[in-house]
């Protein structure tokens, strides 16, 4: 009796320790920092390190709590920030849709190949994802520049007389985003399509569907979970993207990730940057919660 109890207790302690280690790590380095961002967004900027006023102060025997909502008021009323949020959402939405148009046929094509060549093709989709994103963005800079390859080619072919200005425009941002995030869209759609039950297509054909109507009535609706996963995986990070708009975009297109960066490093207004971050998170809460519930449902 006593041995059973001790080994049970021992197992219980082991379990608690097992849970505690990753839990503690994420609490301290992931969740608590978010609370800090929220707190600092209500603070006031000052000179020195850290460059913000503490929220609380002891005044003799009185605990003073100063919450400064000015940053939020500013973020929510100032045109530059509003525009940056809207631009980010717009660019993320359009590039997600465009990516879907490229990724779906590609994923469908790979899924229709023989299993032996499939794994190679999937591997080829993954390779660019593993190689540095900075490099991939940079490769487009040398292609899209005024004296870059694309313009040289078009000039040589006589299609244009003057070099087109593509780099430092919104078009370049779209190209960069679509290019960089494409594997994230292809893979979930592919894994959905390749695990789809092929007899369902046969059943649809048997019941009178042509190839095309079988696709739209059965294959496509069944692949929607993969499509939605791909969209979530792409849309959310793109909204906060920094590198691509910074390197490929122009000064006239401000995305919110870059705004935060500038606020931090150039203006050194940390409370304001924190407020901008909090508003960004608020915007993304719905898609993130959707993504999480989907992922955890899939795993159970």
């Amino acid at each position: 009796m006593s041995t059973v109890a001790t080994s049970f207790e021992k197992a219980n302690w082991g379990k608690r320790l097992l849970i505690a280690i990753p839990y503690a790590w994420l609490l301290v380095l992931f969740l608590a920092p978010f609370a800090l961002v929220a707190g600092i967004s209500l603070s006031t900027v000052r000179l020195g390190m850290p460059p913000f006023e503490p929220l609380t102060a002891w005044d003799g025997s009185i605990l003073n709590l100063r919450l400064n909502f000015e940053n939020f008021l500013y973020v929510l009323t100032d045109d530059t920030y509003l525009l940056a949020y809207l631009t980010s959402l717009k660019i993320a939405a359009i590039s997600t849709a465009a990516m879907l148009l490229i990724a779906y046929p590609l994923a469908y094509g790979i899924a229709s190949c023989a299993p032996s060549s499939r794994s190679l093709l999937v591997f080829l989709v993954i390779v660019p994802f593993w190689s540095s994103m900075l490099i991939r963005v940079y490769s487009w800079m040398s292609i899209l520049r005024n004296d870059g390859l694309l313009n040289a080619l078009l000039l040589k072919l006589g299609l244009i007389a003057e070099p087109l200005r593509i780099l430092n425009t919104e078009t370049a941002i779209y190209i960069g985003i679509i290019y960089t995030y494409l594997p994230f869209m292809v893979l979930p759609i592919y894994s959905n399509l390749s695990s789809a039950d092929k007899t369902l297509i046969e059943a649809a054909r048997d019941l009178g569907c042509s190839r095309i109507s079988a696709f739209w009535r059965v294959t496509f609706p069944l692949s929607l979970p993969g499509v939605l996963a791909g969209c979530a995986l792409v849309f959310i990070p793109v909204v906060g993207e920094f590198v691509i708009p910074d390197l490929l975009g122009g000064a006239d297109t401000q995305m919110i990730g870059r705004a935060i960066w500038l606020e931090f490093f150039n203006n050194r207004d940390w409370p304001m940057a924190a407020a901008v971050t909090i508003v960004l998170m608020a915007l993304l809460v719905v898609p993130i919660v959707y993504f999480q519930s989907r992922q955890s449902r899939e795993r159970t």
Binding site: I19, P22, Y23, L26, L27, V28, L29, F30, L31, A32, P33, F34, L36, V37, I40, A232, L233, I236, P237, V239, G240, E241, F242, G257, I260, W261, F264, W270, A273, A274, T277, L280, M281, L284, P287, I288, F291, Q292, Q295, S296
Partner: peptide, 23 residues
Amino acid sequence: LNGMLLAPMVMPEVVMAVSMLLM
């Protein structure tokens, strides 16, 4: 725990960067 494990996958990098710096 599940939420904390999944969120960073989609969280914009800038958001995580800012919060960790402040920490």
